[in-house]
């Protein structure tokens, strides 16, 4: 195309090319959004389904986040629920013990400010906002050790807020549940 083209005809061509490009752009976007929706439904990685609230100032007094209820609990259906509290500047329990190859739900809340909940090497990544409960389903494929840093600025000691996650063999985990109601790997 040169500038010497008839002006009006050139404008028509330009508009046509533009329109085609716009269509391609829309198609690209639809494809990407479709992929995201498909992956979400088929791999069951969806945002938390329900908003749940919990008073951060009384987490330690009543409800599911009292100290004696924190850690990993075996549910009647064979799944495991892990409860944790984040506070300036540690997670309690400080070391989470979970079995491999088992459906697990992490339930956590914050006792003071906004914290982050990230288990390195996994897709577990959520915010802990005081006043609300975060629930994340996950399944670990194999035993191993993971670091669990707080990933949201929570005050001057933020850089010191690292917990550990220990994934152990399922049978070993089940053997331990007979002796303790709530399991952790805090030394």
């Amino acid at each position: 195309m040169t500038l010497q083209d008839n002006h009006a005809a050139g404008a028509v061509v330009a508009a046509r090319v533009e329109r085609k490009w716009a269509m391609v752009s829309v198609a690209v976007i639809v494809l990407l959004a479709g992929m995201a929706a498909f992956a979400g439904i088929h791999q069951a990685t969806m945002p938390q389904a329900r908003v749940e609230t919990a008073d951060p100032t009384t987490l330690h007094i009543a409800g599911e986040f009292v100290e004696s209820n924190l850690g990993s609990a075996l549910e009647p259906d064979g799944s495991v629920t892990v409860r944790a509290v984040a506070q300036q500047y540690s997670f309690t329990p400080q070391c989470l013990l979970v079995p491999a190859e088992t459906p697990i739900t992490f339930r956590a809340s914050s006792a003071d400010v906004v914290h982050g909940f990230l288990i390195q090497g996994t897709n577990i990544n959520t915010m802990l906002v005081p006043g609300y409960v975060s629930a994340i389903p996950i399944r670990f494929d194999k035993p191993g050790d993971h670091l669990m840093p707080c990933h949201e600025f929570c005050g001057i000691g933020h850089e010191g807020m690292w917990a550990n996650v220990k994934v152990i063999d399922k049978a070993a985990f089940l053997a331990m549940t007979s002796a303790h109601r709530r399991l952790t790997c805090v030394e």
Partner: peptide, 17 residues
């Protein structure tokens, strides 16, 4: 729409907090 987190009664209280 929110709901209160379910209360799970801890069965064995190990030590007073």
């Amino acid at each position: 729409v929110s709901r209160e987190a379910a209360t799970v009664a801890p069965s064995a209280v190990e030590a007073k907090t």
